[in-house]
């Protein structure tokens, strides 16, 4: 299966295009960053890196998410990664198994000095570190589809994270114009947890037919003082990701408050707006 590659020219001088170890297209000879994981987050971080003219390789290992963009081929991580890779962004939120597999393969494929920044909204950074031999190299960070472009990024070092790796992470986030917010390592972190629980409540309101989805969103904008209501936020993030965060919270914290609204579970699987078909109501835009 061909591996999807995406990279950006670092200089204006034309470079010969070559084939990579598994036949993937390569724009430059020395990509410094590898992004691997869920499609939409890979896309969004890819855009950030492109805007900063940073060379990277992108590998999608999660399920297909972008219906409006051309499908990306999926592939396991290539066995032979370029030696120029000095940073890995592992952005799998949807599947713990895929994240673990990716990290274990990365561990074998990249030197111990390479920093791994791994999303820790559905698996804690500490738990991820425990999978690795070189635990000092991993830091958790928050990334949710639709929210990668913010100025601030939540970062969760673990007890194993070394000062050297922390420094590397700081330099990287500075290089892409992000301000770090250090938070304790816990699934959900801050913003993803807040948003997902709010979206879940809005889904319960839909489930119970308390109000029309548009009205629920309007009430939500007033409650939050934001321009988007909870259902619009759910659409923006995608309910699959929302469900993944809530399930992780339920699993790790053991608190029944994170029980998913049944309609959220269904939508996360089917992607269909339940009332759209059954009651002829439009989904939130």
């Amino acid at each position: 299966m061909p591996l999807k590659r995406s990279s950006q020219k670092k200089t204006k001088s034309p470079r010969p295009r070559r084939r990579g170890p598994k036949g993937e297209k390569r724009h430059t000879d020395s990509p410094g960053i590898l992004i691997v994981g869920d499609e939409r987050i890979v896309y969004e971080y890819g855009e950030i890196l492109k805007s900063r003219s940073l060379d990277f390789i992108a590998v999608i290992t999660g399920p297909r998410e972008h219906s409006e963009k051309p499908p990306l081929a999926r592939s396991p991580l290539p066995k032979n990664l370029p030696p120029s890779i000095h940073l890995v962004l592992e952005v799998s939120n949807l599947s713990k198994e895929i994240k673990k597999r990716n990290l274990l393969e990365l561990e074998k494929a990249i030197p111990a000095s390479v920093l791994i920044l791994s999303t820790s909204v559905t698996v804690s950074a500490t738990e991820q570190s425990a999978w690795l031999e070189h635990r000092n190299r991993l830091l958790g960070f928050a990334a949710m589809p639709g929210f990668c472009l913010g100025q601030r990024v939540e970062v969760a070092p673990t007890v194993f994270t070394s000062a050297e790796m922390l420094e590397k992470a700081t330099l990287f986030f500075q290089s892409i114009g992000k301000e770090m917010e250090f938070v304790q390592d816990c699934v959900g972190m801050v913003m993803p947890r807040l948003m997902c629980q709010l979206i879940n409540e809005a889904m319960f309101l839909c489930q119970e037919d308390v109000a029309h989805p548009h009205d629920i969103d309007l009430a939500g904008t007033v409650a939050l003082g934001s321009s988007e209501g909870p259902l619009a936020l759910g659409d923006k993030i995608s309910l699959r990701h929302v469900a993944a965060v809530l399930r992780a919270l339920q699993r790790d914290l053991g608190d029944p408050r994170y029980r998913l609204a049944p309609i959220l579970s269904q939508l996360a699987v089917s992607g269909e707006w339940w009332k759209h078909r059954t009651m002829n109501l439009e989904p939130t835009q």
Partner: peptide, 25 residues
């Protein structure tokens, strides 16, 4: 907005969850 006759209605439930989750974090 128009809602059904359910205790708390819409706004209060959203606000409560928002505040409660912030406090837990």
């Amino acid at each position: 907005i128009v809602c059904q006759d359910i205790p708390g209605l819409v706004f209060n439930r959203l606000l409560q969850v928002w505040c409660s989750e912030s406090l837990l974090i």
